[in-house]
């Protein structure tokens, strides 16, 4: 019995990942000629399979730069970052960062932010399911205590702030609208959430992502409004809340317990300042 023959998978992997290296020792084609092309099938399976996974994951980035450019860029990513688990839907977590530093794409400064948005869409697609708070329950909340209320957001919810109109870019590609020129003259803030089975991507009013992040951190609506207003003096609170309600981002909203002696006072009148 030849116990020495447990082969060196490390050497196999090194050759697999570096096309400049020859095929590893110890393998044969059937005819005794070099097995390079045969080994190249494995090389291609690894690389092309992962590039395909990125192309599925970032379809709008791919449309933006075209197939050839995207695949070449994805190839660079694959060679630097292999998946860390066999769950390919998690692959690409570093892709947006990679794109932001990718020299050949520097003339397309919005590309990395679109990649962030697409990554968030993919995360939301696979995120935990949870039933959003029904509108009736929201309407039944005591208005006078909303400023002090906190919220639990949907586990799929994610916001992305960009100096570029990423939601407009996303939307025109999703809807196959005609691609009339789009000016890069404003930023947009994206909200991604999957309240049931379809992923929603909505634009929040500027400052909205700060508002959502504050709520995510467990701050009250009042504090969240302050956070947004500090960034944008004319923060559109109504528009922001409307977008959040339409997107069904809230799982629950908790009003603070009534304070002593406050229960008989009029609305908005409980003191403590």
């Amino acid at each position: 019995m030849t116990m020495s023959a447990d082969f060196d998978q490390g050497a196999f992997v090194r050759a697999l990942l570096d096309p400049e290296l020859p095929a590893p020792n110890g393998i044969d084609a059937r005819h005794g000629f070099p097995p390079e092309r045969r080994f190249a099938v494995y090389r291609n399976n690894v690389c092309v399979g992962l590039v395909d996974a990125l192309a599925e994951r970032f379809p709008i980035c791919r449309q933006l730069v075209g197939d050839e450019f995207f695949r070449a860029m994805a190839r660079c990513y694959v060679r630097e970052f292999l998946p860390r688990t066999p769950m390919l839907f998690e692959y690409g977590d570093g892709f947006a960062t990679f794109v932001s530093k990718f020299e050949p794409a520097r003339e397309l400064p919005y590309l990395a932010d679109v990649a962030w948005l697409e990554y968030a869409v993919g995360q939301a697609y696979h995120a935990e399911d949870a039933a959003p708070l029904p509108m009736d329950a929201i309407r039944a909340l005591p208005p006078d205590r909303l400023a002090d209320a906190t919220a639990v957001l949907h586990p799929s919810a994610h916001v992305i702030t960009s100096k570029y109109p990423i939601v407009s870019i996303w939307r025109r590609h999703m809807s196959d609208e005609d691609l009339s020129p789009l000016e890069l003259d404003h930023g947009e803030e994206a909200l991604v959430v999957r309240p049931q089975l379809a992923v929603n991507v909505a634009a929040l009013p500027i400052g909205g992502s700060a508002f959502v992040r504050a709520l995510e951190d467990g701050r009250t609506f009042g504090t969240a409004m302050d956070a947004a207003t500090r960034l944008v003096a004319e923060f559109d609170l109504t528009g922001c809340l409307q977008a959040l309600l339409v997107a069904k981002v809230f799982l629950s909203i908790s009003v603070t317990p009534e304070r002593q002696n406050a229960s008989r006072r009029g609305p908005l009148d409980h003191s403590g300042a």
């Binding site: 992962l50 292999l82 688990t85 066999p86």
Partner: peptide, 9 residues
């Protein structure tokens, strides 16, 4: 910790 996404021999 690397997944190679192929069925290797």
């Amino acid at each position: 910790a690397r997944f190679l996404n192929d069925l290797l021999p």
